Amino acid sequence: MTVSVVWAREAIPSGPSVFLAGPTPRSEAVASWRPQAIAALEAAWTAPRTLHVLVPESPGGLRETEYEDQIEWEWEGLERASAILFWIPRDLRTLPGFTTNVEFGFVARTGKVVLGCPPECPNPERNRYLIRLARRLGVPVTQTLAETVTKAVEIISAIDITP
């Protein structure tokens, strides 16, 4: 019933976790989608153990100067996460998500992925390939952040998360 946010480059604890994969704002003028995802996870998580939400952003929006440290943290987070929640509100001007495409292909076959693609985003046609690949691989595909969070919690709940 407790949710703990683990920011980029912080130590990743053991226990149930979800990695919030998807495009990251590159400008302060663009709001991150991740706070809404965290709030939805806080509302949806009812298990007795703490859920660790792995957020590949820095608190306060500070960017890492050592890009390699960021990459290594993200790779470790993707590998160790109990579930990987992809939310891709594609906007080629502000949230292009090019790295997100690679990350999705990197983890799509793990059995712990859910793909959320809102049809009302500025460039939904740019998500067609990922949606088709997800369906081919049996990855759940959703259209709202709430549905995406629900599927991620279902993936985590299917894993034995007893202490």
Rank of each mutant, 00 (worst) to 15 (best):
residue 159 I to K: 15
residue 132 R to E: 05
residue 24 T to M: 13
residue 78 L to G: 02
residue 40 A to C: 08
residue 76 E to P: 02
residue 117 C to H: 00
residue 64 E to H: 00
residue 57 E to L: 00
residue 131 I to G: 05
residue 105 G to M: 02
residue 16 P to G: 13
residue 105 G to R: 01
residue 14 S to G: 15
residue 54 L to C: 01
residue 58 S to H: 10
residue 86 F to M: 08
residue 122 P to V: 04
residue 128 R to Q: 12
residue 81 A to Q: 02
residue 10 E to I: 01
residue 87 W to F: 11
residue 1 M to N: 14
residue 152 A to K: 05
residue 129 Y to K: 00
residue 28 E to M: 09
residue 158 A to E: 14
residue 24 T to S: 12
residue 8 A to W: 09
residue 60 G to C: 12
residue 37 A to H: 03
residue 150 T to A: 15
residue 137 L to C: 04
residue 116 G to I: 01
residue 29 A to P: 09
residue 30 V to K: 06
residue 69 D to A: 04
residue 130 L to S: 03
residue 141 V to D: 11
residue 44 A to F: 04
residue 116 G to C: 05
residue 30 V to P: 09
residue 117 C to E: 05
residue 4 S to D: 15
residue 48 P to V: 11
residue 153 V to E: 06
residue 48 P to A: 14
residue 148 T to A: 15
residue 134 A to P: 08
residue 38 I to D: 09
residue 55 V to S: 05
residue 39 A to Y: 06
residue 69 D to L: 01
residue 50 T to S: 12
residue 132 R to A: 13
residue 136 R to L: 12
residue 92 L to I: 06
residue 159 I to A: 14
residue 96 P to E: 05
residue 118 P to V: 01
residue 96 P to K: 03
residue 5 V to Q: 14
residue 74 E to K: 07
residue 144 T to Y: 07
residue 26 R to C: 07
residue 81 A to Y: 00
residue 76 E to Q: 04
residue 134 A to K: 03
residue 19 F to M: 12
